[in-house]
Design a protein around this nucleic acid. Structure first.
Length: 970
RNA sequence: GAGGAGAUGCCGGAGUGGUCAAACGGGGCAGACUCAAAAUCUGUUGGCUUCAGCCUACGGGGGUUCGAAUCCUCCUCUCCUCACCA
């Protein structure tokens, strides 16, 4: 058998499709549209990699299938051509970025064409073309008009040697990627932002309406990060630190249970009243039976009761040590309450304060009062300086022992007192180095600001710290520290010796596992304690009640916060869309009028020091559009994600020079029905595009809410060794090579037949050989094709396949399609009619378009299979493989099987069948038939497997299957 | 830490209550062709076997059911994403 010349077959059909403009389409109101889109690539000099090939193949199969199903299919391709690599190539090799980009695009197109993808090339979009980015600028102006584009100071990575801003990817361990000896600095620059937060709520809610992978939607939800909580106002009072509140941390260790409750169960009311009167936190640690304490305290409210097992040998020093250790208590924080002599001695030997109890409550009071300093009620100065704080746990407000403000907060200086100035400055210097910022899981650090805040719930003054774990741009940039009930606060408080006050206890006091131990924060919801009138309330209730209570005093309100930040679009880079703004001394930042768009990137620029736009005075200097005076262009360009946020709209009308696009054309084609691309864009491109569409809708350019109705992520393709394909590992497989060696269709077949296309998989040389083998087999079969007759099985199988494979193509279950195609081909090989042969070709055409065309022609068909219609399913001829065997057949089968296993001494036969089959069984007939061969069979008993009265000595009933009775002989 | 996805025979990977010892591919083994190999084709590929069936199997334990790879429950392990968001 001669080698099949796949290369010339491919060329032949690619040329035909191009010449006949098979895939160039236009609006047709009589046809239902379908818009298939693959993410457009960044045209890198390296050309197509296998991941691209997979991406395009997945889209192409769907597009081709939809064409055959009679849809008017829009399947375009373009290039995300602005971006860093072109600029870097320019810096490194002195290549003109535009030339670099155009060469790369040319190479890409060549390779994409070679893959046989059904793109409408007449609609190609290139974002580096000023005819495209003109409309980026137009959108920018519209946003500006609506107040959705604005300027503010923001931090950037700055390399002093490059004299430019670096992208995050260009900073390695705090050093510049090009100057490894240079520390990158954090600088504040005035930058442009898009107000994505304006749409936060809608971006979140509309996720429910689109058919996207759940994990991607979850990622966006987390990214948007909506949380409901309370904003609480804290008054600031600077100046002198007052007596700290730390000493209320004392734990009263009660061992003498009968001090509290006597033998008869009478509560020592005097002592109880006293303990109840103690301020704030009161913890009673007991080693006595819980029941006695319940009597004493009634319901657990302001007390945290640590109970340990009753232990007769408890008075030994060792035992106390163990107890202290178990509850993570320091002996200096414990006041011990005891009556027995050895208990007192043991405690004293450990250096614990002991209250010897002999029935005199007065003495106890005096002693405890001397050890526990009463809470100093802070008299907040009416300074009028109020800071707001966001919290999702207003129920813990009584547990606030400090505040933390972000190191990068704008108004930080207002809090820093003269005494603390030096310490704070030193701390901030440390924080500002990027290397500090980059360290993973860096420790919580902070410094006291010198100021205090007044807790509106209890009037307490608490110190305000400056900390690195608080984000300046989330909430208000300040948090209330509740160390007992927040992990971070706890860590911070422990590090700096700030007091910890428990205000929430577990619901079940006997739950030893899940409660506040003092070793770590107790972050679960529970029951409030030491929280004034809210003590005893559940966290859930308290969240509402405390918020309402504070709101009533004008100190709080319910708010919703988002993690989502506004999108900073300024890039101090050359190869991007220029921001259409001119700065004028008199008029400030003036937008370039629409009629003057596009602001085109200058061609002649000098790379080397910083952003080349900044040193290009010819381009930079211009007239102020407002006053006509001296103006200076904005030298920052836009983030490249701006370009990709709306390109899918431009495909509908790619050459329009008057408008961003014709609204009616966009209305016809959009939204995108199926969008295919990598999962790595979940939170950037896919979110920005949704934002853009919502904005364009609001200015009347669109009439839909979401850009991509359905989203599909292809899996990652690894090298044969299971590792990532990379040049340095030398394991890269180039699609262009593979296509040459095995043919395009085999490559396409392989890519989608190894695994479900949404799963990761490894390249396999054996695998592609298998694909090639199959395609050759198909080719050879048709090569000598003479129509024959269809078997009943074939007709059934063929129609089932038409139905199933169609569904598979629709739902990206391509791997299953290849499996059924192989099975069907196995049937076909046994002989088939010409009609069936043609239908089979149609089934494989979306995956293997070149071979399908070639064989279609060879077999004598006119026209192109690419635009032929998908075969109709004849449901009637599909034999149901689950079809029930008729009563007749069932009985015969049973007889046959009984005969097969009959023994010479068999007297009785038990037959077990499925419950729904029992009615079809003819007992008499079975008996008659087996008697023919063996006369002394006396009885045949038939049971349904679920019959509870059945006789089944050998447990055979559970072996029965539909159509397959189980038999037991006796 | 939070969220998501998984665990099937030598391997990749179907299978979501009964015709499942488990599709399809790869690999292995045997045979055909050949001087021989590659390619191709045929058969076979859990164990025991009187080819009827029995036993052991779909990460591990427990459960539901006449019946579980498939449903419930607990456990173990793997992968991915975001991570100091108050």
């Amino acid at each position: 058998m001669d080698e099949i010349d796949f290369v010339s077959i491919e060329k032949k059909w690619q040329k035909t499709w191009e010449e006949k403009r098979v895939f160039e389409i236009s609006e047709d109101s009589g046809k239902e549209k379908f818009y298939v889109l693959e993410m457009f690539p960044y045209p890198s000099g390296a050309g197509l990699h296998m991941g691209h090939a997979l991406n395009y193949t997945i889209g192409d199969i769907l597009a081709r299938f939809k064409i055959m199903k009679g849809f008017n299919v829009l399947h375009p391709m373009g290039f995300d051509a602005l971006g860093l690599p072109a600029e870097n190539a320019a810096i490194k090799a002195g290549v003109d970025p535009e030339k670099y980009t155009n060469d790369a695009i040319e190479n890409f197109v060549k390779q994409q064409r070679a893959l046989g993808v059904s793109y409408d090339w007449s609609r190609m979009v290139n974002t580096a073309n000023s005819e495209y980015y003109k409309w980026d600028q137009w959108i920018f102006l519209k946003m500006l008009e609506k107040g959705l584009a604005y300027q503010k100071e923001a931090s950037v990575n700055w390399c002093p040697k490059c004299d430019t801003v670096l992208a995050n990817e260009q900073v390695n361990e705090g050093k510049c990627w090009r100057h490894e000896d240079t520390d990158v600095e954090v600088r504040k620059l005035r930058q442009w932002f898009f107000r994505t937060t304006e749409y936060a709520e809608e971006l979140l809610n509309d996720l429910e309406r689109i058919d996207w992978p759940e994990r991607t939607k979850t990622m966006q939800r987390n990214w948007i990060g909506r949380s409901e909580g309370t904003e609480i106002s804290f008054e600031i009072s600077g100046g002198e630190p007052q007596i700290s509140q730390i000493s209320t941390d004392k734990v009263i260790l009660v061992d003498a249970v009968h001090c509290l409750v006597d033998e008869k169960g009478n509560v020592n009311q005097e002592l109880k009243n006293y303990l109840d009167s103690l301020p704030n936190r009161k913890i009673v640690l007991t080693m006595a039976p819980k029941s006695k304490f319940d009597l004493f305290f009634g319901k657990v409210k302001d007390y945290e009761i640590f109970t340990t097992e009753f232990n007769p040998k408890k008075s030994s020093p060792k035992y106390y040590e163990k107890v202290l250790e178990e509850f993570n208590l320091k002996k200096e924080n414990v006041v011990y309450f005891e009556h027995s002599e050895d208990g007192v001695d043991s405690a004293k030997s450990l250096g614990i304060d002991v209250v010897p109890y002999n029935g005199d409550v007065k003495k106890v009071k005096e002693f405890i009062d001397s050890k526990i300093k009463p809470q100093i009620s802070a008299n907040a100065r009416e300074s009028g300086n109020v800071w707001k704080v966001f919290t999702t746990r207003p129920d813990t407000i009584f547990g606030v022992t400090f505040m933390v403000v972000a190191a990068g907060h704008d108004k930080l200086d207002e809090l820093v007192t003269n005494e603390q100035r030096l310490a704070v400055d030193e701390y901030l210097r440390k924080m500002n180095s990027v290397s500090e910022k980059d360290i993973e899981r860096r420790e919580k650090e902070g410094v006291f600001s010198g100021s205090y805040a007044v807790n509106p719930a209890n009037g307490e003054r608490v110190p305000i710290w400056i900390g690195n774990f608080v984000l300046a741009d989330y909430g208000s940039g300040m948090v209330m520290g509740v160390p007992a009930h927040d992990k971070r606060d706890f860590e911070f408080a422990k590090k700096y010796g700030i007091s910890v006050r428990q205000v929430v206890t577990n619901k079940d006091p006997l739950d030893f596992k899940n409660r506040y131990t003092g070793k770590e924060a107790f972050v679960d919801d529970g029951v409030l304690m030491a929280s004034k009138q809210f003590s005893g309330m559940s966290s859930l209730e308290a969240k509402t009640d405390i918020t309402n209570w504070l709101a009533g005093k004008g100190n709080a309100k319910r708010v919703v916060n988002f993690k989502l930040r506004d999108w900073g679009v300024s890039r101090q880079r050359y190869w991007g869309t220029p921001i259409p703004i001119v700065y004028c001394d008199g008029c400030g930042a003036v937008p370039v009028p629409e009629k003057d768009l596009p602001v085109v990137l200058p061609k002649e620029v000098k790379f080397g020091k910083g952003n080349p736009l900044e040193t290009n005075s010819e381009w930079l200097n211009c007239k102020c559009p407002k006053c006509g005076g001296k103006g200076r262009r904005e030298s920052d360009t836009m983030d490249t994600f701006v370009n990709s946020s709306w390109y899918f709209l431009r495909y509908a009308d790619p050459k329009n020079s008057k408008k961003i696009f014709d609204f009616d054309k966009v209305k016809y084609w959009n939204p995108v029905d199926v969008y295919i691309g990598g999962a790595e864009h979940a939170c950037m491109h896919l979110l920005y595009s949704r934002f853009y569409v919502k904005f364009l809708r609001d200015i009347g350019a669109l009439d839909f809410d979401e850009p991509f109705l359905k989203l599909f992520h292809q899996g990652m393709l690894h090298a044969e060794d299971g590792r990532k394909m990379s040049k340095s590992l030398g394991n890269v497989v180039e699609p262009i090579e593979t296509m040459k060696k095995y043919g395009v269709d085999a490559t396409r077949w392989f890519l989608i037949s190894v695994a479900s296309p949404d799963k990761d998989f490894d390249w396999s040389e054996k695998g592609i050989l298998g694909a090639t083998r199959f395609i050759k087999k198909v080719f050879e079969f048709y090569d000598s094709f003479v129509g024959g007759k269809d078997s009943e099985e074939l007709v059934s199988k063929l129609n089932l396949c038409i139905k199933n494979i169609g569904n598979y193509y629709d739902s990206f279950e391509y791997r299953k399609a290849t499996i059924e195609i192989r099975e069907l081909f196995g049937e076909l090989e046994k002989g088939c009619s010409k009609d069936s042969g043609l239908k089979f070709l149609k089934l494989i055409a979306p995956i293997c378009p070149h071979v399908a065309e070639e064989l279609w022609e060879k077999i004598g068909e006119k026209g192109l299979i690419s635009v032929a219609s998908w075969p109709k399913v004849d449901e009637k001829v599909i034999k149901n493989k689950g079809q029930k065997i008729s009563g007749e057949g069932l009985n015969e089968k049973i007889v046959e099987r009984i005969k097969g296993i009959l023994k010479s001494d068999t007297k009785k036969v038990y037959v077990y069948v499925m419950p729904f089959e029992i009615g079809q069984i003819d007992k008499e007939k079975i008996l008659r038939d087996i008697r023919d061969s063996k006369l002394d069979i006396r009885e045949v008993a038939v049971f349904a497997v679920n019959d509870s009265t059945k006789i089944d000595p050998a447990g055979r009933a559970n072996k029965a299957k539909p159509g397959m009775a189980s038999i037991y002989l006796e």
